[in-house]
Amino acid sequence: MSGLSLRAERVTLGYGGRPAVRGLDLDVAAGELLVVLGPSGCGKSTLLRAFAGLLPAMSGRVLADGEPITGPSADRALMFQDDALLPWRTARRNVELALALRRVPRGRRRAEAERWLARVGLGDDAGRLPRELSGGMRQRVQLARTLAAGPRAILMDEPFGALDAQTRASMQRLLLDVLADAPATVVFVTHDVDEALLLGHRVVVLGRDRPAGVAAEFDGAASRDELLAALGAGDPVKDDALKDDALKDDALKGEPLKGEPLKGDVLKEAV
């Protein structure tokens, strides 16, 4: 089984008629590991949901192996940031869920689920419920479940974003290790520059502007500074200025806020 190629053509995506991503073009080659890097709320997850088939495009096309994506499929498994395990199922039964939905015969599910759990280092915790596991362990179960679905593309939505730095580092090593013998295409979404540097063969940076488009693209060896510069390309200073304007507007609307800016000025002077 080979990886799936994914493609977005002039795609506009959003919720409730408000675009979060506009006119985006993106090609992901079969078997490639692509990192999509962008600030929080830039539409990275929206893009991933479109590839997963959970969100139809407002305009443009989203394709898998040249065919339009019309809905979710086990071919394109999505790994979430947290809380995507079914809490009433043990770790093993969560992995078995992926196998059951693939119509793996009942008798083979248990052994195969245990094999996947052992692969992510949770061989001894198969019988525990999600609430009895740490955040990092829960993400490892989710990784096992995602892999057990036998996807040709794995879509990862900041899967380690809720973990502490040490756990995250070990999860990143585990992921690279596991992916080394899986032929699947991977789209990995993150806001963390170091994570992008560690994982990515190719890094696509989504801009700060709303709706977002591709701000920069790096093939192979991008440096940390290059990525940071690309992330900052949306001019955060201008954005902050906009935020200040919004605050002022609020202050004018509501009387009680009037005292607030004064306090700030006093503090600034004190500093």
Partner: peptide, 11 residues
Amino acid sequence: VWEDAVRTLGG
């Protein structure tokens, strides 16, 4: 997210 997870696993 539970429903999304099961749907993307092929449910």
